[in-house]
């Protein structure tokens, strides 16, 4: 891979290979914690930090890692950063952490972080790896903000706890089922934008879809 420009790397993570809507990875939290924008934002920032730090670590450490045991080591690197982020969040944002704590811990098992380390950071120098991490992290953050604000607005009529619509338009959106519906609709929207731009539809929105 010749090193693409910074803009290409970041835009790729945001739109063309958006981790949630395009690659269909890291879906669990995307559905689980996006009942309100605030929760989504917190987890989005946490994932962003872990993704960037892990990508950089993998890229820095790659000369010292025997390729045969790289995956367990990558998992340990991710686990290390997740533990750090987990403790920081628990200390500074106890109220939100009480709601999303389990999902912060489960960032370890996010396929997106490991797959970026394996597919990109282990083959590229530090700076492009950092940008790739930032792009993917931002892509996830964007997905969290989009679903979070949509669900909070439709489900409880407010954004960040500030009431915008006095009634609760469609309570279903904040219920478990609503998360699936919202993500499905946004994915369809991404496909529709592609269709409008004259691109051919990929066969189902995901690497393994």
């Amino acid at each position: 891979m010749s090193s693409p420009s910074a803009k290409v790397l970041i835009m790729r993570g945001l739109f063309d290979e958006n981790p949630v809507f395009r690659l269909a990875l890291s879906l669990c939290p995307a559905v689980a914690v996006t009942t309100s924008l605030k929760n989504g934002l917190l987890l989005g920032v946490a994932v962003f930090c872990v993704q960037v730090l892990s990508s950089v670590s993998a890229s820095v450490l790659k000369p010292f890692i025997n390729p045969r045991i790289r995956l367990p080591l990558f998992v340990l690197i991710v686990a290390l950063w997740v533990s750090a982020v987990d403790m920081i969040l628990a200390a500074y944002f106890p109220a939100i952490y009480a709601q999303v704590g389990l999902y912060v811990k489960l960032i370890v098992a996010f396929a997106i972080i490991l797959s970026r380390m394996e597919l990109f950071a282990s083959k590229n120098p530090i700076w492009p790896s950092t940008l790739d991490g930032i792009g993917m992290g931002l892509g996830f953050l964007l997905a969290m903000i989009l679903t979070g604000s949509l669900r909070e607005l439709v489900g409880s009529g407010s954004i960040l706890g500030i009431t915008i619509i006095p009634t609760k338009p469609l309570l279903l959106a904040v219920l478990p089922a609503g998360g699936f519906f919202t993500i499905g609709l946004i994915m369809a929207l991404f496909n529709w934008i592609d269709l409008m731009r004259g691109k051919k539809l990929s066969s189902g929105g995901g690497a393994h879809g």
């Binding site: 699936f180 993500i183 994915m187 879809g209």
Partner: peptide
């Protein structure tokens, strides 16, 4: 519908199951 093919419709299905 073409834009729902694949994963989007799978999500809608999962939503119905969740309900």
């Amino acid at each position: 519908p073409a834009i729902f093919k694949g994963l989007p419709i799978a999500f809608i299905l999962a939503g119905l199951f969740a309900m």
